[in-house]
Every structure is written in C-alpha cells, then in structure tokens.
C-alpha cells in the first residue's frame, strides 16, 4: 500500500555524506590532472599554486612524457602482454578445467591434479621470484613471452577453480547427446561447452586483465628493466622525471588513462566480473 511512496523517498543525509566522501576518491585524481597540465613555472611553493586549475591547458607535458618514457612502446608491450595472457588463459584454463571437472569424481589422477593446481594459490610471487629469474634467463624467455607464460601459470589456480565451479552447473546430458551423434571430446568442448562458459570467460578476462595490466613485480624482475610495460615505465624513468613533477604527473596520467577509459565503457562488466570471481 505504502510501498510506492517509500520507494520514491531517497535517504538524502546518506546520499550527501557519500557525495562528500567522494572527495577522498576524486581528490588524488584531480591533483593528478591539474599538475599534469601545468607548466613548472605555475607551481609556486604555495598550495594554491599546486592545486589551482592550470592557466592554460597545455599538452606540452604529455608530448614530452610520451617522448621521455617511450610511451608507445610501453603501451604496446602492455597491450600485447595483457591480451595474450587473457586469450591463452581463457582457452587453456577452460580446457583443463573441463578435463578435470568431468573426471574428478571418477578418477584420482584428475582429483589430485585439481588440488595440486588450486593449492598454487597460496604460493606468492615473492617466493618464486628469485629462482624464476634464473630459470627464465637460462631458458632465454626473460622477455614478454616469458612474462605471459608466467601469468598463465600464476592465474591458473584461480581460473581453474572458477571454471570447474561453473562447469558443475552445465548438465552432462548435453555432452552425452553430442557423443551419441559421434562427436569427439575435443569437438564437444569447442561446440558446446566453451560457448556455454561465456559468463565465466568474462569474469576470467576481467580478473586476469586487472591483475596483469597493473602488475609491476613480474615484468620488473623477469625483464629486468630492459623492456617496459606501462606501469613499469613509471618506475624505470623515475630518475628522468627528476623534480619536474608536471612531467611525471603527465606520465602517470597517461599510464592511468587506458584503464580509466576502458572502465568508463565496461564498468558494469568489470564490477560484475570482480564480484563473480570473489564470491565463487
């Protein structure tokens, strides 16, 4: 009876508190933007000089940052590494989860494999770091290929857990019908199971992308500063920025921008992906 009225009533005090609280999220971003657009001469020592809007919105800092940090190369490396990791992860992890998930109940080998892989979640990179530096150098994969390979291994525990969990909801009857028609395991997977895993592919893509795109440690130790990804470039060129904070902040903003733009368009997908991954 009264519900329709209640629905239209918003809780304004909480809304206002949340809007005020937003300052804590947006202030660092505001600071980044205004400093990135300013020229060093505008940065007087007073706080007004730092935080006021730029007198002219100049792109000079960005042009220089792109040059100094070799931006396009770093961006390309980041895009290639992330894209390759996502692509390979989706294919390999869903495939192995399928093999494991469908045989776990009946075969010890597969059950053991499942626990073996999933327990890898407890192994932090810091433990593997020192030996991996040697191993990748010896195998001559201390390059983007090696980084992708490592990511595929590091994200395997989480993704296999997610995929096998999801697989439980896909009835075996579908595959059995295909089998009767003479379809092989391989083609059954690609024709029936892989497409049905669609929602989980999205979750895996989002979680893997967030993790690899922003990761610094793996590319830092494996490629030891010879090849940069976008975040890693901020570390490598830190000395070149010196005390020119305007240049540095232009570079930081450029590093944040691809993810912010992507988030703008895929906000729902990203948030849902994160929720799906965490809750499962």
């Amino acid at each position: 009876m009264a519900t329709s009225k209640v629905k239209e009533k918003f809780n304004w005090p909480v809304t206002i508190l949340l809007l005020i609280g937003l300052v804590s999220v947006l202030f660092p971003l505001y600071m980044t933007v205004v400093i990135a657009f300013k020229s060093p001469t505008e940065m007087t020592t007073s706080i007004e000089g730092i935080l006021s809007l730029p007198q002219t919105w100049s792109l000079d800092n960005f042009a220089k940052a792109i040059e100094v940090t070799d931006f396009w190369h770093s961006l390309l490396n980041s895009v290639l590494i992330t894209a390759a990791t996502i692509g390979i992860s989706i294919v390999v992890h869903s495939l192995v989860a399928y093999a494991i998930g469908r045989n776990m109940a009946s075969r010890k080998t597969f059950r053991f494999s499942y626990f073996y892989i999933v327990s890898g979640m407890f192994v932090p990179f810091a433990i593997l770091m020192l030996p991996l530096v040697k191993e990748t150098a010896q195998l001559h994969i201390d390059n983007p290929v090696g980084v992708v390979l490592l990511y595929v291994v590091f994200y395997m525990p989480m993704n296999v857990l997610l995929y096998t969990g999801y697989l439980k909801n896909i009835p075996v009857a579908l595959e059995e019908a295909a089998r009767v028609d003479g379809s092989t395991t391989w083609s059954t997977f690609w024709r029936i199971i892989f497409p049905l895993m669609g929602p989980m592919h999205a979750t895996v893509a989002v979680l893997t992308a967030l993790g690899t795109w922003n990761d610094v440690m793996t590319p830092l130790v494996i490629m030891s500063g010879n090849i940069n990804t976008l975040p890693l470039a901020q570390l490598t060129f830190q000395t070149q920025f010196g005390t020119n904070y305007n240049l540095a902040f232009a570079s930081y903003l450029l590093a944040m921008l691809p993810m912010l733009v992507f988030y703008l368009f895929a906000q729902k997908k990203i948030i849902n992906g994160v929720i799906n991954g965490a809750v499962k």
Binding site: L22, P28, V216, Q234
Partner: peptide, 25 residues
Amino acid sequence: IKFKSSLRGLYFIPNILGALVVGYV
C-alpha cells in the same frame, strides 16, 4: 540513496588503477 549506480561506479575507481602509479601520486 540517489545516484546509486554512479556513486558505486565512482567509489570503485581506485581498484582499477595501478598500485605503483597511485603510490607515486
């Protein structure tokens, strides 16, 4: 609350940014 989905979207932003760059800022 009013602006529910926009507020949720905005409060999630810190999580998509790289920790290294956030640290520098």
